[in-house]
Design a protein around this nucleic acid. Structure first.
Lengths: 124, 124
DNA sequence: GGCTTGTATTGACGTTCGTTGATGCAACCT
DNA sequence: AGGTTGCATCAACGAACGTCAATACAAGCC
């Protein structure tokens, strides 16, 4: 159930000094744009927020997410799939229900990528 | 020349505790999604990076941005307009040329919004 | 004035995206 | 086994997006 994420925030965002450090090359830009594009939809942003606000290691059942929107169930499922393909979240089926959580470190790596003041000691 | 930005990263991202603090309401999500959508294109990400890497208060002439892409001049102009409407950059015409710069604080506010570990003393 | 250069806007095109109803699959319960 | 519930996938639709050629605008130069 959990496969095919991008795992690009590790190499690109963390290592290469961030958006303001130096001009991105085409590949870095293409990879990172996928992540921002995934966050560039109100429904997906709310989904991310609902999942992320469960705290570290927290999980949310799809059955708790869907009723918060005026959208059909396939639409929510589609947005969750996009977030998963962007490497932001992962999921697991337990019995009848499917639980989603935020992949650890992803949001902080993205934040570090955007920040203009680079945190000390990130050279490694 | 400089008008019609969003200026939403001030109210939403900074004040309301960030993505992981609590579920976003629809309005916050809609506003912030516009910013992430603006960053969700490889060309616009590279443009942002090229402008932001000029440092604090740094400016870039359009004539330095356009030749870095295999795209027509109107396309670059269009992407710059979207970044400006998202409240990320601003511009000014000086003589024949137009210079762009990153609006101060925007990237750091976005980074703070994404970070799961909220920086201390942001309650005000 | 006209000519040239740099940038923005317009109008059109093909592609991608967001959404839905219908359907399929997985797991539980009699 | 059959029936029910939760979630994913499929196929199709309109809307939004990225791109371009053509055009318009602004400023400098002759």
């Amino acid at each position: 159930m959990s496969k095919q994420e991008l795992e690009l925030i590790g190499q690109d965002a963390a290592c290469c000094g961030g958006l303001s450090a130096a001009p991105l090359d085409e590949d870095q830009a293409a990879d990172l744009a996928k992540v921002f594009k995934a966050l560039g939809d109100p429904v997906r942003l709310r989904l991310m927020s609902m999942i992320a606000s469960r705290g570290d290691g927290g999980e949310v059942c799809v059955c708790d997410l869907t009723p918060a929107f005026d959208l059909s169930q396939p639409t929510i499922s589609h947005h969750l799939k996009l977030l998963r393909q962007a490497g932001l979240i992962d999921c697991e089926r337990r019995g009848t229900w499917v639980y989603y959580w935020v992949l650890p470190g992803v949001l902080d790596k993205l934040a570090a990528f955007l920040a203009t003041t680079q945190p000390a000691g990130v050279t490694a």
